[in-house]
Design a protein around this nucleic acid. Structure first.
Length: 285
DNA sequence: CTCCAGGGAGCCT
DNA sequence: AGGCTCCATGGA
């Protein structure tokens, strides 16, 4: 059954939100000449497509709510007002109007960002998909879909099998992190109750999780909208456009940007990131 | 062929 | 604390 959400007065671009590189948990398919996206969660399958101010969706299991996973209840105009500190960020807002931060499931988000180090985005996505197909439970919806495996399941996978999925040297990180999540050493529910600094320190206990991966997981799955992840792209863009606030040191640079953009710095980060990748050459002077 | 990719760990000072 | 090197592997 197809339902829809009325997006009048709700700024939203499905395409920008899911194509900007923040999530590896969504896939695009074409059905009857329409570009659609689907995600498979612990709660079931959700398929969505947008036509102007209508967001159509079908899902299996009411717990996979598009309003929740696409953060449609974020007050985007208020967020823009809060983070709109200068002409450059204003330009990125104009170029990416309607882009929202996603709310992904914690475990697949964590494993994907551990995988992401020294890798290109299409390959990260491919590895998550291969993990799902090889080790995830299947769900029967309009066809067969695959959930991301539980920490319990993934912890049992031999390291060399993960290497065979082209995870490379990250295979050991994936296995050991899965074991620690399984054993409750790090618990996403507990992390949500901590403040930003404590939550980040806790995540960084996990092997393969440094500052950048921790910031991504906090932002894209644990609702820490002030988190400002710094990758090679952001580093170039900030150095070029915000030179006075630039620092080689990750912690210092990240703190500078959080102080500057405020409590929605994570939104600012994603707008800068996507603008930098699509609208400018960060290497040019 | 060489170089680099949404970094992090381990070692060094 | 801060700096350096290596880590697999695909794609340009």
């Amino acid at each position: 059954m197809v339902d829809f959400i009325n997006l009048e007065d709700v700024p939203f671009s499905l395409e920008k939100t899911l194509e900007c590189g923040q999530t590896f948990s969504w896939n695009k398919i074409k059905e009857e000449d329409t570009e659609k996206y689907y995600t498979v969660r612990s709660g079931g399958v959700l398929k969505v497509w947008q036509d102007g101010d209508k967001l159509f969706y079908t899902n299996q299991g009411d717990e996979v709510d598009p309003i929740d996973v696409l953060r449609l209840d974020d007050k985007l105009d208020d967020i823009y007002e809060s983070m709109n500190k200068d002409r450059f960020i204003e330009r990125t807002i104009a170029a990416n109007y309607g882009l929202r931060i996603v709310r992904d499931d914690f475990f697949p988000c964590l494993i994907s960002y551990i995988t992401s180090s020294q890798m290109q985005i299409p390959r990260i996505k491919r590895i998550q998909k291969d993990i799902r197909i090889n080790y995830g439970a299947s769900l029967d919806f309009d066809r067969e879909y695959y959930q991301f495996p539980s920490p319990e399941s993934l912890a049992e996978v031999p390291e060399n099998e993960l290497r065979d999925l082209n995870a490379g040297y990250r295979a050991g990180y994936i296995k050991r992190t899965s074991e620690m999540i399984r054993d409750g050493v790090v618990d996403p529910g507990e992390i949500r109750r901590l403040n930003y600094e404590e939550a980040k320190d806790k995540l960084m206990i996990l092997p393969g999780v440094g500052e950048k991966v921790a910031d991504c997981v906090l932002l894209f799955s644990l609702d820490f909208l002030e988190s400002f992840p710094i990758d090679t792209w952001i580093r170039k863009i900030v150095k070029k456009e915000y030179n006075g606030k630039y620092s080689k040191n990750y912690s210092e640079l990240s703190e500078n940007m959080r102080n500057y953009f405020g409590k929605y710095a994570g939104y600012a980060q994603e707008y800068l990131f996507h603008y930098g990748r699509t609208c400018m050459d960060p290497d040019s002077p």
